[in-house]
Write a protein that binds this DNA or RNA. Structure first.
Lengths: 257, 257
DNA sequence: GCATTTCGTTGCACTGCTCGCAACAGGAGA
DNA sequence: TCTCCTGTTGCGAGCAGTGCAACGAAATGC
């Protein structure tokens, strides 16, 4: 589903990235914790941290021997770009939607052949700690993904749909291309998409398209919650709220309507 | 000024980070460009890119052979943390300030012994393309830095001021500690700080403090513009606008006033 | 259209960079 | 005070990283 260059090649680089991920996950860690987690000797972990620190990707926290991610990461993130503007401009609307709908709201964009989550605002009743930001999700199994697929141009969509079988993630995942295409046509009519436990058991989501100045769909805003509390009926009731929010975000991106 | 662990140690990791910085700066690059810039053989550059791609920090753009930063960076940035909340909550106010003042607005926080820029909104008349986000700036030579120094607790401030001589960056940089202390006392009285070509020739800035729920100063919001268009008189006129903006941001962080 | 140049990609073998080991100093807890 | 754990440093072996050469594909120039 994407072609990777190289084989993942340079072991010490791979290890350094693992170090970054550990710090991202844990917030802070010492040399020995890092060493244990990537299964290397302490002195190796120490040197990897040193290399990362010398370039600002890692820094030492106030506690001696505790390392955390540094602002060099933010600087790099500033280069990832234009799609982060979408995230920024939509954030206030997401906050309002999260309060109004009561569930967690996400912004996602199409990237390669995935829906990538750019931003997240937890709903007041959110019980799950899961942070979707930066996560890649399969297009066919998420409401955001379906929105992005529905509004992709025909050629792009045909390519995305022919990139291999639709992977079943739950019993409910749509794996039949014809059925998915039917849903995508419906999404273009109704203006929103929904997913009923297709990505994860117990997780329901609904999404609406965000348009750019030019009118093309460049992102999706979604609301997600547990199936027991966010069933199909409720999702359909809330569709208009989400669509309004999506329209407001579109306006913020310069879309005239 | 900080203590570095290791010596920057692992050459291949260092090279990989250089690759990330090149992509951040250029947006996109091919194997040969990267190789030329870090002065390694093409095949080495290719393998470094491959390692970074395998972990999502780099991805291939639609153009064959063109690489760009991937969303793994965003995921990592999500772990840098709590201070990014400040950035998010203040952004709408920064946008308004940038329009109202007409110049570029930044948010900065104290980190180690630097002012680190978290966010930036360019003013309508901004001619410079410079992106300060993620940049470390010396406390004594920026208005944000002065605000953060002025409101640091006495012990911390004494430590920061005793960390070596105040480096002269222009003819106008304050290098006398007593003079800087006098300015910091004035900042605490007036409620804002300004810099007249102290960081860079031709660059003037003004800053005001942002307070957290607890009332302590956790960030500074600043406006900066070219001296010819943003002279001292105009800055003082605009101080109340910036202070109002800072107060609004403080309110957003839960400060009750 | 053809020839040339440049690109990205792969396999090979050399060697220097990476790594683990051992030792040490410092801090915390019993 | 002793023990254990931590982070940090120096050393040298060996293997992982590297440059070279070759190849196919794409781009460019005539």
């Amino acid at each position: 589903m994407g072609n990777e260059s190289g084989s993942g090649g340079v072991q010490s680089v791979d290890r350094a990235i693992s170090v970054l991920e550990i710090l991202s996950r844990r917030g802070e860690a010492g040399v020995s914790e890092v060493a244990a987690e990537i299964d290397v000797h302490k002195s190796t972990a120490f040197r990897l941290l040193g290399a990362l620190e010398a370039r600002g990707l890692v820094e030492q926290a106030e506690d001696r021997g505790k390392y955390r991610l540094g602002f060099g990461i933010i600087r790099l993130a500033g280069g990832v770009n234009t799609q982060m503007d979408i995230s920024r401009r939509s954030h206030p609307v997401c906050q309002r939607l999260a309060e109004e709908i009561g569930e967690t709201v996400n912004i996602a964009v199409l990237r390669s052949s995935y829906a990538v989550n750019l931003d997240q605002v937890r709903g007041p009743s959110a019980v799950t700690a899961y942070n979707w930001v930066g996560q890649l999700t399969p297009l066919h199994a998420t409401s955001s993904g379906k929105v992005l697929l529905a509004h992709a141009d025909d050629r792009q969509r045909a390519k995305l749909l022919s990139d291999g079988p639709l992977e079943p993630l739950t019993d409910r995942t749509i794996t039949d291309v014809a059925e998915l295409e039917r849903q995508l046509a419906e999404i273009r009519e109704t203006g929103y998409a929904f997913c009923l436990e297709e990505l994860e058991d117990g997780l329901n989501t609904i999404a609406a398209p965000i348009r750019s100045y030019h009118g093309d769909v460049v992102a999706a805003v979604s609301a997600s919650g547990p199936a027991y509390r966010f069933p199909a009926e409720r999702m359909h009731e809330l569709a208009s709220v989400l669509i309004s929010g999506a329209d407001e975000i579109s306006g913020r991106l310069g879309y005239a309507g």
